[in-house]
Simulated assay, not measured.
Amino acid sequence: MREEGYTLVGRNPVMEAFRAKKTIDRLFVQDGLKDGPILSILREAKKQDTVVDFVKKSRLDEISGGEVHQGVIAYLAAFSYAELPELLSIAKEKGEAPFFFLLDGIEDPHNLGAMIRTANLCGAHGVIIPKRRAVGLTATVARSSAGALNYTKVCKVTNLVQTMDELKKEGMWFVCADMAGESMYKLNLKGPIGLVMGSEGDGVSRLVKENCDMQASIPMKGDIDSLNVSVACGVLAYEIVRQRMMG
């Protein structure tokens, strides 16, 4: 699906975006193309550590909606990403224990936007997402955040586990959502904490879950067994808020 206003179609627009140091979330290149302009674009993508997908021409035709793409399409981020130290600085400036959302493999832009909105409203100091196998800051994410992206910093990292290790050195603890975990009401969720939410289908990935200090479940009283990931995120986030307000 094409993100209107944030999709660059064709070699010149994509190359100019790289030269202007624009944030490109993902680059699509037609498989098998190796001419000079394509190689130049790939070199720029490597410099900026951009995710590159080599795909069939039919896939590019689908993304471009029939526009002439010359074998290259890029998704431009709707907002710039923050660096991890910026998120820590926000908490420090407010005199608060750091509180971050770490979103592991969220692919639905509406869910990501909703969780960024929740992060803003519950006072989280930032959102951390992985570079691969997850949606970036697309136009749909921006709309779904209802303006929260203007105020809430989002950091994109290469490896969530390594990022968690870095934050543990800063004194942070991590709790992940897991249906088999302990009830959120029985856990101590105060202090510097990261709330980890997993993908819509598979939940939190194994390595990320193993790096969490706690696994929290939400009591279920109905006939179905799970909430939408963005709703579950809100429930867990506000239990953290409640405990932080209790002191």
Rank of each mutant, 00 (worst) to 15 (best):
D53M: 04
A139H: 03
G32L: 09
E86I: 05
G234H: 01
K21A: 13
V175F: 04
R143H: 12
Y185H: 13
K153P: 12
Y6N: 13
V72R: 05
L87C: 09
A74V: 12
A20C: 02
R133N: 14
V127T: 00
N120G: 14
D49I: 02
S230N: 03
G147S: 05
L88C: 01
F18G: 06
R242L: 01
E86L: 05
H69M: 07
L207D: 14
S58K: 14
A20V: 01
S217M: 12
T118A: 08
V231S: 01
Q243T: 07
K209W: 10
G123Y: 00
K46G: 00
V241Q: 07
D178G: 07
L189I: 12
I24Y: 05
I73G: 05
L102C: 09
I106W: 04
Q243A: 04
I116G: 05
V141F: 08
H69I: 10
N159Q: 11
V157H: 10
V9N: 09
I224C: 12
V29L: 02
C122K: 10
L207E: 14
I129A: 10
R117F: 07
V241F: 11
R26T: 14
G95E: 08
I128C: 10
E170C: 13
A177N: 07
A82R: 02
N150Q: 15
A124S: 12
L84G: 00
G126A: 09
D53A: 09
R26D: 02
K209T: 04
L112S: 08
M15K: 14
T163W: 07
V127H: 08
S89A: 15
A237Y: 03
A232C: 01
S64E: 06
Q30A: 13
D49H: 13
S64W: 07
A142K: 15
E96Q: 14
D108H: 11
E67S: 06
Y185D: 12
D202W: 02
A139K: 13
L189P: 02
T7N: 07
K34Y: 01
I90P: 09
T158H: 12
F100S: 09
I24T: 08
R11K: 15
N111H: 13
S89Q: 13
K92G: 03
I193C: 06
L76M: 14
G105V: 05
V68L: 14
R244I: 08
A20T: 00
I116V: 14
M1L: 09
M245G: 11
A139Q: 14
M179A: 15
A216M: 05
G126F: 02
S144L: 09
D165C: 03
L121C: 13
E86N: 13
A216E: 02
K168A: 12
